[in-house]
Structure formats: structure tokens, C-alpha cells
Amino acid sequence: MAFLELKNVSKSFGTSSVLKDINLSIEKGEFVAIVGFSGAGKSTLINLITGLLKPDSGTATLNDLEITGPGPDRGVVFQNYSLLPWLSVFENILLAVDEVNRNWSPAKKREHVEKYIAMVNLTPARDKRPSELSGGMRQRVSVARALAMNPQILLLDEPLSALDALTRATLQDEISRIWQEDKKTVVMITNDPDEGIYLADRIIPLTAGPSATLGPSFVVKIPRPRDRKAINHDLHFKQLRRDVIEFMLNSRHDRHVSLTKKLVLPDIEPEDLSLPRSIVNRRTRPLRKSEIKEETVEVE
């Protein structure tokens, strides 16, 4: 049996069906990216794995044990960082370490926290509060906090969506480096196919909701470490990128209802508002395209 397994999982809120017939199996040490539109139910899916939500039907198991609630065996990084604003970087991470390793000595805990702060390159900001940090730095704290619990699986719920393109690329590189160091099982939710391809071993698209379900797996065979520039020469990358984007866009097109209604666009030109209305008002109707040409001839 796979390390993380979802079998025929469905979830509805009230009468609206969000997820339907989700089947997912992830092996130990794998980095899987789930790509989907916003509003498709990506966060619902990850919350079923974290145990913050329970499926209406079907089962979710981690390491052969059914997931019944949240636990420190699953580390989560949320899009909105979710740090405690009155605690420093060090204290935020210590909070998690304290909870998981109650019998450790204070010195051991401190050393452990500092190791993870260093891993995300935040040692200089060790004693700062979240409000003093940029978005990218806050998300690093969040990543360090999740990793410091030494979870069996790391769940990333759109971790980089709130960041600008440049910070995003830097953090992608960092996540990639950290993952290669300790090969933890990772499930990342993202809306960016490129992010998925750059980081993951396997990409699974989530179709557009309602009643979203998982599409076929796309295996990413690009060798690591990956280079954002060099992969543009990789034939496999180009093909994969095209297939994933096409699959995603088609899953949405199926949903659109084509509207057959005859549309009329009047063949009239806008008025120049910089001219006084008294001049324009000699005309009682707008100009048409054909009339404009005549005017140009007169001017020249």
C-alpha cells in the first residue's frame, strides 16, 4: 500500500459537491504537485489530508493508518503563513518543536530550532516578529516551522501564491534544495503549472469544479537539480508543459455554455471630449466609420 492514499474520497459543503471520487496514492519520498484553478477545491483536498476536514465518503490513510484529525506527523505550510504575530521567528518555531518533543532538554530544542532557521537562511532575522518580515521571509518561517516538527509528510497549500515573481523563484529554489537534502514526502498544491513542473516528480491536475476530480498523473522526468533557464531546451519539459496546460484549460472549457445570441455593435465613433460640446452639437448623431474617412480627406 502506498504511503499516502485517498480512496474514492468525496466532499460536499451543503448541497454543493466540491470533490468527487478522488483517488490518490503517493509513495514515500515523492514530491507531488496538484495543480488546479482557484476555487476548484484544492484547499479542501489538502485539508482532507491534514485532517482539518473529514471526507463524506471514502477513506484517507497515511502509513496505513486512517487520518482522523490533525497531527504532527503532517507538517502544513499555508498560503497566508499563519504565524503568531506576538512571537519572534525563533519562538514561532520553538512552539511547534515544544509541542512535538516535550521530553527534549531546552538546549536540544534550541539547537534544533536554530538548525531549521539556518536551513531557510533566516539566522539574521532570528529575533524579529512576523510584522517586521517581508512576505517571502514569513513564508520561510512557516516552512521552517513545518520541517522542524520532523513530519512524515510535508503539505504545502499554495505556499508561494501571495509572493511576487522574483521572491517566488527564490523560494522555489530553496524548497527544491531543502527537499533534495532530506527527501521528505511532499504534496504541494499550486495554481501554476510551471511551479509544479519545476519542483515535482509528478503532477496531478485537479479538474475545474464543481465536483472536481483528479486527472491523469504527469511524470516529470527532468533531471535534478533543475535550472530554470536550461529547461527551456528540454524537449520533455516543452511537451509536458503543453500537455498539462492543455489538460487544465480543456477541463474548464467543457464547463462553459456557449451563448448563441446575435450581437450588434453599432458602427459609431466615440466623441472627442477635449472639444467643446457646442462644436460637436452641430451634429445630432455620432460619426460613423465611413464618415471619418471623408473628414480626413478634407483636412489634408
Binding site: 459609431i268 452639437n281 448623431r285 455620432p286
Partner: peptide, 12 residues
């Protein structure tokens, strides 16, 4: 910008 047009044309 289409203040000289008819109401119908603007709606269209």
C-alpha cells in the same frame, strides 16, 4: 464618449 449616440446604441 458616446453622448451623441442614442440610448439604444449605447446599450448595444
Amino acid at each position: 464618449v458616446f453622448y451623441t449616440a442614442s440610448k439604444e446604441e449605447r446599450r448595444e
